[in-house]
Write a protein that binds this DNA or RNA. Structure first.
Lengths: 225, 225
DNA sequence: ACTAAAACATGATAAATATCATATTTAAAT
DNA sequence: ATTTAAATATGATATTTATCATGTTTTAGT
């Protein structure tokens, strides 16, 4: 099994704040997992015994609403860590994580991480900074949900995915989402997403290649009102 | 000036994790401020040089949306701390704080708190736990905004205020908000809030005494669909 | 390659909510 | 106490979005 010390992914998350010795210990007790597209990594309300470091792939974090619909709260990709919030609060997860493509994860047991949190203040501070960023992002999402139209929210979702997850060689968005997934990000009905995407196509903002979406006029999308 | 060690308010926030010596240092450099109802404590985009500990009163945290409307993200009351997110991210504030009634605040300079964060891991962990809780709450708000009706969101806002801020001796909600404030919590037009409140009144869920709202049928409000 | 199921698409309609207009009430200032 | 401004209230209407129905295309499995 590969060692955490040499793992490139670590550079992108809080684990970079750990010392060599700490990484060695973690490396010794971590377990690797392969998750297929569509599989659930953890359920909402599950108690996790550790955190996941995403070595490859993208997943969605969703919360089930009272009306039975899933809401996508966040997309998480390679390099990021899953489950830190419930680890810190010592609570069951408040979100479900589902793989959007094939993924490779490292699972690090709770005891090991808690130990590092207590002893390595740099590590704690780094996690804290991450969480502060997540919180700011969440505030932005709240305002968008409350104040913007479906059309605006969908335009922003496309821009967001383009910016944060990039594109394939042909220019299409690299994260492949169903119309239903988009509806679940935007907080609307699937039919509404389909309609608005059709409009965007007519207006020349996007084009589609199969299920893939390509942004054709990024400025146009930014100007959507 | 009173000392932090003896301040009751401290029991409710992360400052409780500080040692006696740390508290003495903070006590020596803190400044006290009185803020009148309606006054702005800090603006969105302002750079804070410290944090505020709320000794008395309630304030709203708002964010200006692109359409010019304010969105209330959170109400914060006595015992809680303001400005910790921007302190930790070392960024300008992402929210504006406005007093909802007369307030008393203690301002603690950045350098002092940063120092404690670096040295006292219990303090850091406590802030981290707080932030993890805030994040979970924010996730819930996102789902509500995305999936629930104005009627449901307003009912929940009333229940929330009742639960977290309590009532006056006559049973009315102790935090006095304008219809516009409610609109800004729920993410809707002021007229819509007024209409729904009128419905709630007709349905016997609430009554009003002047501007004050009294919950008459808490179970009814909980059942609102 | 064929079939069934899922995803996508679009129209028709209903429901929710926003906007505009205009009273009425309440609070604030002189 | 009187005036003025702000907040609350309600109706009429427009807009946005959801829901239901139905058809088409794509995907997955045999």
């Amino acid at each position: 099994m590969s060692k955490c010390e040499q793992c490139i992914v670590r550079q992108f998350n809080s684990l970079k704040a750990l010392t060599k010795e700490e990484l060695l210990r973690i490396s010794a007790c971590k377990t690797s997992r392969i998750i297929k597209k569509g599989e659930v990594i953890f359920e909402e309300g599950e108690s996790l015994n550790g955190i996941f470091c995403i070595k490859d792939g993208v997943c969605k974090l969703t919360k089930l609403s009272a009306n039975g619909k899933d809401q996508i709260i966040k997309l998480v990709e390679k390099g990021q860590i899953l489950g830190q919030r419930s680890l810190i609060s010592d609570e069951r997860t408040n979100l479900r994580a589902t793989a959007l493509n094939d993924m490779e994860l490292c699972f690090i047991p709770k005891a090991e991480i808690i130990n590092d949190l207590k002893k390595n203040n740099n590590f704690t501070m780094d996690i804290l900074k991450n969480m502060a960023d997540d919180l700011r992002e969440a505030d932005d999402v709240i305002v968008n949900m409350a104040q913007k139209s479906v059309r605006q929210r969908l335009a922003e979702a496309l821009l967001d995915i383009d910016e944060n997850f990039g594109t394939n060689p042909d220019g299409t968005l690299s994260v492949l989402l169903s119309r239903e997934d988009f509806a679940s990000i935007v907080g609307t009905a699937t039919e509404s997403v389909i309609r608005v995407l059709s409009q965007f196509k007519k207006e020349g903002f996007i084009s589609t290649i199969g299920k893939y979406i390509k942004i054709e006029d990024i400025e146009g999308l930014r100007r959507v009102e």
